[in-house]
Write a protein that binds this DNA or RNA. Structure first.
Lengths: 146, 146
DNA sequence: GATTGTTATAACTATAATGGTTACAACGGT
DNA sequence: ACCGTTGTAACCATTATAGTTATAACAATC
């Protein structure tokens, strides 16, 4: 018998897509956007929404009304980019998308040089992705809903 | 007392940087590149190296000599790009970097549309990163070692 | 043919992020 | 005071990662 084990890389968390979903809701339906209402649209637990809302709040993207309920944008939808949202919810070490194995052998000419040389290339790749994210605004997204 | 919990996004695995390290070694020191030797340069366990070598082999990038030991490139270093290596070791679901929360509420105009609209934007961002990775070859990297 | 060093792989571990859940305190109108 | 909401803490199951030990298969050499 042959068994195949598929190794899956951890992808970028659904937090990001949920955060965009949240902001879209607040933009399109500015009133009545309570955590429970949003959770109903996303189809998840309200606590998940509140957690992500907390990140968006900390990033200055939304304002939440405790007690009363509901949220509103702190920027115009045309001034919120996907990169803003990505940065708000994807808290990675030093904002690095790629990881490096630590402590390569400095006695080896390759081990000594690889990280510095590779790091600059990967920074470029990450920057390319982020620049593309920065080109899309929340208003561009919501304009595509009918 | 205030405690702060830093949530870290899973970044792209060190497999990728280790794989580039491995290929660089095979390119620069074509002989004597056994798993143990490579593991000594990367500074990790030989099994980690063999596992990644298996992925590189499956992707047609290297040829490994069982029994005898050692490996050699199956393409010229100028024909191996970082994207080739990335694809070889980062086996994600449908090659998607970004994840989506499943089953949004189709009763909601936002929940109904968000995925389709957002997905095309994120595909563009991922493509931008991959295109940048495709611009760097193994030979360009090794040329920067002294 | 036995020895030796290597590759291939299974099985296991510890760690950590994810996504979800329950529970409860704090808040702010009515 | 009540009620619905927000803000968190605590906990859980799942999963990928990175590493380890062990063992079988392999190929050259003695």
């Amino acid at each position: 018998m042959v068994t195949t084990v598929v190794i899956q890389l951890k992808q970028i968390s659904t937090r990001f897509s949920i955060a965009v979903h949240i902001l879209s809701l607040v933009a399109v339906i500015p009133h009545e956007c309570t955590g429970d209402f949003i959770a109903g649209s996303v189809n998840t637990n309200p606590v998940i929404i509140r957690r992500i809302m907390g990140m968006l709040k900390k990033a200055g993207l939304v304002e939440v009304r405790p007690g009363v309920g509901g949220a509103s944008l702190r920027k115009r939808p045309e001034d919120i980019t996907l990169l803003d949202v990505y940065r708000a919810v994807n808290v990675t070490d030093e904002n690095q998308l790629f990881r490096f194995h630590e402590d390569p052998n400095v006695q080896c000419p390759v081990g000594r040089n690889i990280e510095l040389v590779l790091r600059s290339e990967l920074m470029e790749a990450q920057a390319a992705m982020e620049q593309r994210l920065a080109q899309t605004t929340l208003s561009q997204l919501t304009a595509k809903f009918q």
